[in-house]
Amino acid sequence: MARVSRPDGHLAAFEAQRPRLLRLGYRMTGSLAEAEDVVQDAWIRWARVEEAVESPAAYLTRIVTRLCLDRADSARARRETYYGAWLPDPLVETTDMEAEIMADDITLTLMLALERLSPLERAAFLLHDVFDMELGEVATTLDRDPAAVRQLAVRARRHVEEARPRYKVERADADRIARAFFIASRDGDTAALASLLANDVTLTSDGGGKVIAFRNVIFGIAKVLRLFVALRRKSDERPEILEWVTIDGLPGYVTRDRGGIFQTTALDIRDGRVAAIYIMRNPDKLGHVAQAVGYSPDI
């Protein structure tokens, strides 16, 4: 790679890497806002570099990874005090930026699997398995021995693979099931819902303490069925579809729900059934989605 010259080449080299850096920051933190902050901090450090850099991509990847690792302890502490269930910021395929971040095959379900890894395991897996970095380069980035990094990646890969579906659902089938699920859940149709849900289905909703959401994850088809039936009985107002979307690689939709609450719903579909339901209601995590679908709470 040609050496970077200042000032024009310096900025151009950074801008060429920005989408990749943002994707790494999001995959490391689960937060789009935090990823953007990390990339901005990386730019500040990059702008101060006076010497020529042979590989801006490797250099900037190292900066962003270490910045994310520096934030890992405080992020974990925030998760522990977070009100209710926590979900990553939802990304929808309506903008070039978010489509770029979702260029890999890391779905929302796998993002949650990454949350169960240590920060170093997460970094090793992402850099080696997702961003295709050589093991030696990953070791340099993490300032660890290559053998230790290999073990980190192996342990991480084992956990992530356990969360992957055995069979990939076709897009048309996923969309059909998502639409059927929306109609059945909207109407409180117990029979239709029962035909769509896996027996061990889970429902996770993130309100962040800002709006009403279920504080704990709901497990099992019986409890999920009772939930949707109860919601239907409580109000004649029904959620309104704003857009059908893909959310972090999963089929889903954006709605204005009962009471005018803006939310996203993503469905993990396995073996033709909905295995997990992820509902984001936290307004702090939905601003970019509202902008993407052209929604304003004042409308």
Rank of each mutant, 00 (worst) to 15 (best):
R3F: 14
P7A: 02
D8F: 04
H10N: 09
H10W: 10
L11P: 00
R18F: 00
Y26I: 14
M28T: 14
E34F: 14
E34V: 15
E36P: 03
D37E: 14
I44W: 04
R45M: 05
E50Q: 09
V53P: 09
S55L: 15
Y59I: 08
Y59N: 15
T65N: 13
D70R: 02
A77E: 07
R78L: 11
R78S: 13
R79V: 05
V92P: 09
D96K: 06
M111A: 12
S118W: 03
S118N: 03
L120T: 07
R122L: 10
F125R: 09
L126Q: 15
L126I: 15
V130Q: 12
F131D: 11
D132A: 13
E137A: 15
A139E: 07
D143N: 09
R150V: 04
L152N: 10
L152F: 11
L152I: 12
L152T: 10
R155F: 07
H159C: 03
E161M: 03
Y167K: 11
E170V: 00
R171F: 01
R171M: 06
A172E: 14
D173Q: 04
I177N: 00
F181W: 07
S185L: 06
S185N: 08
R186Q: 08
A191R: 14
L193C: 08
L197F: 01
D200G: 07
T202S: 07
G209P: 05
N216V: 00
G220D: 05
V224S: 06
R233M: 12
E243F: 10
W244K: 10
V245Y: 01
G249F: 04
L250D: 02
P251M: 00
P251E: 01
T255C: 10
R256M: 10
T265K: 00
I269M: 00
R273S: 06
I277C: 01
M280D: 04
A290C: 03
A290M: 14
Q291T: 14
G294S: 12
G294D: 11
I299C: 05
